[in-house]
Simulated assay, not measured.
Amino acid sequence: MFKKMLMTMFGLAIAAASALTPAHAGLVIKQDFWGKNADNSLVLFGQLVVDPTQAVQWSGSIYKAYGWSSFKLFGTDVAKPAPLFEAEFDMDNLYAGFSFLSFDVSDSNNQYNFFGINDVALDLTFFDLRDASKAFDDPASVIFTDDTLVTPGSTAVSAPASAALLMLGFAGLMLRRRQAV
């Protein structure tokens, strides 16, 4: 019985190690952008992912990123490079998300223009998403505009750590089950 349990644990350990090795996932900061439709329902229209390891140290634990890993509008990649992009965050508290975010970007198909600013210290937030095929001053070009950034929150994600915790949880459940029998 003990030998079988030991073999099961060894198998789980190998499975966990092999599952984590090819992932190559690191810590990222993700920001979702939501807009309100005319009926006040929320629509996810943009997603920004920044790799903290590509940022530069600004002051103490405050880092600034001048590029992104992924930036999508309605599932379409945003054109790179964007000279008017800056994201600031606290490396000691990645779960707090961006303390400052400023951008002026267009998608790679030139369908959308998206600009905005979010400064937590000044309690200032504004974004504007427009149809690029229409004149900027045309009110019909506005898709979403708001002075509040509707977001369920920025998230810091570490896929390998989550997978390891999941495997440890399964191993614990198996041990508990074996002890109960």
Results as ranks from 00 to 15, higher is better:
residue 1 M to D: 01
residue 2 F to C: 01
residue 3 K to C: 02
residue 3 K to S: 08
residue 5 M to F: 09
residue 7 M to C: 00
residue 9 M to W: 13
residue 10 F to S: 11
residue 11 G to R: 01
residue 11 G to Q: 00
residue 14 I to V: 11
residue 15 A to R: 04
residue 18 S to A: 15
residue 22 P to N: 00
residue 25 A to V: 05
residue 28 V to P: 02
residue 30 K to E: 15
residue 31 Q to H: 15
residue 34 W to C: 01
residue 34 W to N: 04
residue 36 K to N: 11
residue 40 N to E: 08
residue 41 S to N: 14
residue 42 L to D: 02
residue 42 L to R: 08
residue 43 V to I: 09
residue 44 L to A: 01
residue 44 L to P: 00
residue 47 Q to R: 10
residue 47 Q to P: 00
residue 47 Q to V: 15
residue 54 Q to T: 06
residue 55 A to R: 01
residue 57 Q to G: 00
residue 60 G to H: 09
residue 62 I to Q: 09
residue 63 Y to M: 00
residue 64 K to W: 05
residue 65 A to K: 03
residue 68 W to R: 05
residue 69 S to C: 04
residue 72 K to Q: 14
residue 72 K to A: 03
residue 74 F to G: 04
residue 75 G to D: 04
residue 75 G to R: 04
residue 77 D to A: 08
residue 82 A to E: 15
residue 84 L to E: 13
residue 85 F to Q: 08
residue 85 F to Y: 15
residue 85 F to R: 08
residue 86 E to Y: 02
residue 87 A to I: 04
residue 87 A to L: 03
residue 91 M to I: 04
residue 93 N to F: 09
residue 94 L to P: 11
residue 94 L to N: 07
residue 95 Y to E: 12
residue 99 S to K: 13
residue 99 S to W: 03
residue 102 S to I: 01
residue 108 S to L: 15
residue 108 S to I: 15
residue 109 N to E: 15
residue 109 N to C: 03
residue 116 G to K: 02
residue 117 I to K: 02
residue 120 V to N: 13
residue 121 A to V: 08
residue 121 A to R: 12
residue 122 L to S: 11
residue 122 L to E: 13
residue 124 L to V: 11
residue 124 L to H: 13
residue 124 L to C: 05
residue 126 F to K: 02
residue 126 F to C: 01
residue 127 F to N: 10
residue 127 F to S: 05
residue 129 L to E: 01
residue 129 L to N: 10
residue 131 D to S: 06
residue 136 F to Q: 07
residue 138 D to T: 03
residue 140 A to S: 10
residue 140 A to Y: 00
residue 141 S to A: 07
residue 142 V to F: 00
residue 144 F to T: 07
residue 148 T to M: 03
residue 149 L to V: 12
residue 149 L to C: 02
residue 150 V to F: 13
residue 154 S to V: 07
residue 156 A to F: 07
residue 159 A to F: 13
residue 160 P to D: 06
residue 161 A to M: 09
residue 161 A to H: 04
residue 161 A to E: 11
residue 166 L to N: 04
residue 169 G to P: 06
residue 170 F to R: 05
residue 170 F to K: 02
residue 173 L to V: 12
residue 174 M to F: 14
residue 178 R to W: 06
residue 178 R to S: 02
residue 179 Q to R: 15
residue 181 V to C: 01
